[in-house]
């Protein structure tokens, strides 16, 4: 066996916006007809099914809408395997796929004033990050400079960013550069 190692362990930059690698996070991807698998998934996770571009958080877990036929569950790293098994059983009667992809992605947490968080991300993505277009509770899969990523404003006020683990170092450097105090614009 091996010990799971978070991508960029202990990577952190403090300032107007603090950028931090969130460490090991459980992620379970679900593919299938959301109308069909929604109910068993909601029962098994205790979360309601998010609307298009939505993310639902409750009790340390979150369920995100990723595409018309894909959901992603965020949970504690240690419980991901068990949840994946539960969901596989819960969706056994549907044409659906459940996979524990916890080690495929890296998650970053940006904390600071909301306007500063929006500004930091707006430097990296073409997505519309104005408060009315990107309120808390929405997840936006988009481009972060040269790579794919997804961003959402969590209920605790942090901006969460996920990207593929293979580009974690690149995204961390991007976020740190965009978050430098000297780079403040004050747009939002």
């Amino acid at each position: 066996m091996f010990d799971a190692t978070p991508p960029l362990a202990r990577a952190r930059q403090d300032g107007r916006v603090s950028v931090e690698c969130a460490g090991l996070t459980g992620m379970v991807t679900l593919r299938g007809d959301i109308a069909a698998i929604g109910e068993p998934v909601a029962d098994a996770t205790g979360l309601s099914i998010p609307d298009t571009l939505g993310i639902v958080e409750d009790g340390g877990r979150a369920l995100a809408w990723m595409s018309p036929d894909e959901l992603m569950l965020f949970c504690a790293y240690d419980e991901a395997e068990e949840i994946a098994a539960t969901l596989t059983a819960a969706t056994a009667e549907d044409h659906a796929l459940v996979a524990n992809v916890s080690d495929a992605r890296a998650m970053f947490e940006l904390s600071g004033e909301e306007a500063a968080l929006r500004e930091t991300l707006a430097k990296l993505t073409p997505a519309d990050l104005r408060p009315d277009a990107f309120p808390p509770g929405t997840i936006r899969r988009t481009r972060l400079a040269q790579v794919s990523g997804a961003i959402w404003l969590a209920e605790d006020g942090a901006m969460r960013v996920i990207c593929f683990r293979s580009v974690a170092d690149y995204v961390f450097s991007l976020l740190c550069h965009a978050a430098r105090p000297a780079a403040a614009v004050g747009h939002f």
Binding site: L53, P68, P126, R143
Partner: peptide, 12 residues
């Protein structure tokens, strides 16, 4: 037409 996002060309 699937997610409703007004996507910039560089996202496509």
């Amino acid at each position: 037409p699937y997610c409703g996002v007004a996507a910039d060309e560089t996202e496509l």
